[in-house]
Computed example of a mutant assay.
Amino acid sequence: MTFDTLKLQAETILSNTEKTVNQRLMQICELLEANIEHYNWVGFYFKNGDKNELKLGPYVGEPTDHTIIPFGKGICGQVALSNKNFVVPDVAAQDNYIACSITVKAEIVIPIFVNGENIGQIDIDSNTPDPFTEADERFLEFVCEKVSEII
């Protein structure tokens, strides 16, 4: 399935006000994981109130012990501080990486902004080495922009 087709499906999911925000976010996770071969774990992390930490939201994939991530720790924690996309072609080469599974080879994290504030992120793990392209990055930015409209 092409990113253009997935964009339309994501918009349809996110615009369905009959479902809760969390239900819609879970549907986004399911859509991406099921339709993009190299997306093996798809989830959302959000700022945990006034704390300098992220809290795991809806996700699809292997269970994770990382339900709370302090700002600065791991890829997600670094994105919480930098406010920038982080594409990791090889997680083994990252000093500040939190291993979720030995099968994970690469990760991409894209922040979600509401009124200029980084309120969370989408996190994708891949069991394929170096799978993420600029097209993945642009597509996930689109998804995050649409998610920001319902938060």
Score class of each variant (00 low, 15 high):
Val79Pro: 00
Lys55Leu: 09
Ile68Thr: 13
Leu6Lys: 13
Thr128Lys: 14
Ile68Lys: 10
Leu56Ala: 01
Ile36Arg: 10
Thr5Gln: 14
Asn83Phe: 12
Val109Cys: 11
Ala92Met: 15
Glu149Leu: 14
Thr103Ile: 12
Ile102Arg: 14
Ile124Met: 10
Asp90Thr: 06
Val87Met: 12
Val91Tyr: 11
Cys76Leu: 07
Lys51Met: 03
Pro131Ser: 10
Gln9Ala: 08
Asp123Asn: 14
Leu140Cys: 04
Ile112His: 06
Glu33Gly: 02
Ile122Ala: 05
Val114Cys: 11
Pro70Asn: 09
Asp90Leu: 08
Ala10Val: 14
Lys47Ile: 09
Thr2Pro: 07
Asn35Glu: 08
Ser148Pro: 07
Ser148Gln: 07
Ile112Thr: 11
Asp4Leu: 03
Ile68Leu: 11
Cys76Ala: 13
Gly72Arg: 13
Tyr59Glu: 00
Phe113Lys: 11
Gln121Ser: 10
Ala34Phe: 08
Val91Met: 11
Lys51Gln: 09
Asp4Cys: 00
Thr67His: 07
Val91His: 11
Thr17Ala: 10
Pro58Thr: 03
Phe46Met: 09
Ile69Lys: 08
Asn52Trp: 00
Glu37Arg: 05
Pro129Arg: 14
Asp123Ala: 09
Tyr45Arg: 02
Ser15Asp: 13
Lys146Pro: 03
Val87Phe: 06
Arg24Tyr: 03
Asn115Pro: 00
Lys47His: 03
Lys19Gly: 00
Ser15Leu: 13
Cys76Glu: 06
Phe132Ile: 10
Gly61Ser: 04
Gly77Val: 02
Pro70Gly: 01
Leu54Glu: 00
Asp4Ser: 08
Glu107His: 12
Val79Arg: 03
Glu145Tyr: 15
Ser148Asp: 06
Phe46Lys: 11
Glu11Ile: 07
Pro63Tyr: 07
